[in-house]
Simulated assay, not measured.
Amino acid sequence: MPTRLRNARNTRNARHGLSAALIALACLLVPFGALAAWVTYGLADTGRYVTAMAPLAADPAVQGAVVDTVGAGIVHEVAPRLDHELGARDERGAVRPFVYDAVRSFTRTEAFHTAWEAGNRAVHDAVLRALEDGRDRTVTVDLAPVTAQVKRQLADDNIPLAQRIPVEHTAVPVLPAQELDRLRKGYQVLEVAGFWLPVSAAVLAATGIAVAACRRRAVTATALGTALGGAFLLLAVAIGRRLTLADLPEAAHRPAGGAVYDALTHTLRSVSWLLIALGLAVALACRLTEFLARRRRASAAPAADPAPGPTRARV
């Protein structure tokens, strides 16, 4: 084999190997980059978080969880006072269903939607400030404004006992200090990765396609790898949902937990399906263009000359 031909073949093999390695690494970074970007630019943004959570105020499972939690809290605070004022210990049982019915009615009002958004905004702001200020402390939030809004709405609806609901500025813990430190470290890593992982994936993919000996095949491989990364991300979201709901202490609140999880991961699932659709569409387009190019070359090739027949000998 001539030296020049051998060198050309070695160069082509090296380009194949380098291109495959770069494209494989780029496709591996795709799901992790999408996940990091979702956390950094989705969950960490208060406006987007509140917007994602807002529709849950009309979800029956979420409303049921709110009724159980808020109703239990009101009964815990109000019933002992009624026992003291009315001098009847059995008033607790009479008050409990009434309070629950009142809270259930309140969850169907427009004021509840406003209180829901205000509460979510307050909690998100408190957690975000704790992640950014670097202090080790238990994250708390003052829900007195939300409670006051609930009390005012119940009073406007002429609900008895509404004026007895206490509005106290109590620091409600939402995140313990030991969990905050671990969460802060993860948040700092994701904040950096949310920008650099997608950029790195794009640069690696572009470089892999540029150095490939056959760029159409490199684009096809990149597209299929991107679709595979989207499918992997979609599977990870489904597994995460299952594990998250399994960790909930109360099975009765799992429908509400599932609704919250689905609302928060809606953008991530949409990105996953977009990666799958885009990757498959580009791969199909590459195969189609390759097929058309082959047909064009075949039709442009000159027809082979017919084989000459036997010549007759002259007489």
Rank of each mutant, 00 (worst) to 15 (best):
D181T: 12
L131I: 03
A118V: 03
V78R: 01
A102V: 09
L131P: 05
A148T: 08
R96T: 13
G186Q: 12
H113W: 03
V167K: 12
Y187C: 00
A171L: 14
A102L: 07
A118K: 09
T109N: 04
A130P: 02
A79I: 03
E85W: 03
V139Q: 03
M53F: 12
R129L: 15
A65T: 05
Q188L: 14
P55M: 05
P60Y: 00
T138C: 07
Q178P: 06
A58I: 05
Q163A: 15
L86A: 09
G73W: 01
A162L: 12
A72Y: 04
P160G: 08
H169Q: 13
V99C: 14
A148W: 02
A57P: 05
T138N: 06
Q188E: 15
V139L: 08
E77N: 12
A111E: 11
Q153R: 12
L128I: 11
E168P: 02
L154M: 13
A148P: 03
P60E: 00
P160F: 07
A148S: 10
W116A: 04
F112I: 09
G93H: 09
H84W: 02
A171F: 11
L143R: 05
V174E: 06
D83E: 13
Q149H: 04
A88G: 03
G64M: 06
T107E: 01
A155S: 15
L154W: 09
R137Q: 11
L128C: 03
L131G: 02
